[in-house]
Amino acid sequence: LDITFHVDGKNIHVHGASEEVVRIIEELIKNNARAEEIKETLERLLR
């Protein structure tokens, strides 16, 4: 699975993920999660 995301100002662009995963990533970023935390969360979800 190949998910890429980047933050452009306040806009979060996520590619290669389901809508549910996109929402989770957006929440994590809004809550100022570190990249490592986001990665760990995604790995748990995608197991």
Rank of each mutant, 00 (worst) to 15 (best):
K39T: 14
N11R: 11
G16I: 05
I38R: 00
I38F: 03
R44K: 10
L1N: 12
D2R: 06
R34T: 15
I12N: 02
A17M: 05
E19C: 04
I3V: 14
I38W: 05
I12E: 01
N31V: 06
A17S: 05
E27V: 09
N11E: 15
E26Q: 14
L42I: 14
I38N: 01
L46R: 02
I38A: 01
K10F: 15
T4Y: 12
R23H: 11
H13I: 12
I25M: 05
S18H: 05
H13L: 07
F5V: 06
H6S: 11
K10Q: 15
E40H: 10
R23Y: 08
E37C: 05
E20C: 03
G16F: 06
N11H: 13
L42A: 04
A33S: 07
E43Y: 10
I38Q: 00
E27W: 13
K30W: 08
E40P: 01
D8G: 11
K30G: 08
L28W: 02
L28C: 03
N31S: 11
G16L: 09
I29F: 04
V7C: 03
K10Y: 14
T4N: 08
S18R: 04
K10L: 15
T4A: 07
I38L: 06
F5G: 01
I25V: 09
L28A: 04
H6D: 09
R34M: 10
R44W: 13
E26L: 15
R23G: 06
I3C: 05
V7H: 06
R23V: 05
V14I: 10
V21R: 00
T41I: 12
T4E: 08
T41N: 05
V14M: 05
K30Q: 10
R47P: 15
K39R: 14
A35C: 10
I3M: 11
E27K: 11
D2W: 12
N31W: 07
V7L: 08
R47L: 15
E36P: 06
G9Q: 03
E36M: 05
I29C: 03
E40A: 12
V7S: 04
E19Q: 12
E20V: 09
V7Q: 03
A17N: 01
T4P: 01
H6E: 10
V14G: 02
L46A: 04
E36Q: 11
L28D: 00
N31D: 06
I12K: 00
L1I: 14
I25F: 03
R23F: 09
E40N: 10
E26F: 14
I25H: 00
R23S: 11
G16R: 06
E20D: 11
I24A: 10
E20S: 08
K39E: 15
L1P: 08
R47V: 15
I38G: 00
H15N: 08
G16N: 14
H13N: 08
V21S: 03
G16P: 02
G16E: 05
I3G: 02
E36V: 06
H13C: 05
N31K: 12
A17C: 07
R47I: 15
K30S: 10
N11T: 14
L46I: 10
H15A: 10
L1M: 13
E37K: 08
R34S: 15
R23Q: 10
L45E: 03
S18M: 03
L28K: 04
F5I: 09
H13F: 13
V7G: 02
A35T: 05
I24E: 06
D2H: 14
H6K: 11
R23C: 04
I12G: 01
K10D: 12
V7P: 02
L46Q: 04
V21D: 05
A17R: 01
S18T: 15
A35V: 14
D8R: 03
T4C: 10
L28R: 01
V7A: 04
G16Y: 05
A17P: 05
N31Y: 07
T4H: 08
K30L: 11
D8K: 04
H6F: 14
E19S: 12
T41Q: 09
L45C: 00
I12H: 04
L42V: 07
L45F: 06
E19G: 07
L28H: 06
A33W: 07
T41A: 14
E36L: 05
L46P: 00
H15V: 13
S18V: 04
V14H: 02
D2K: 10
E26P: 00
D8Q: 06
F5Q: 01
I3N: 03
K30Y: 09
N11M: 14
N32L: 05
T41S: 06
R23I: 06
H15G: 05
T4Q: 07
N11V: 14
T41E: 12
E43C: 06
I25N: 00
F5A: 01
E20G: 06
V21N: 02
I25A: 01
F5E: 01
I3R: 07
L1W: 13
I3Q: 05
V22N: 03
E19Y: 13
K39H: 14
I29T: 02
S18N: 10
L45D: 01
K10W: 15
R34I: 07
G9T: 02
I12F: 14
F5N: 01
E43K: 10
L46V: 05
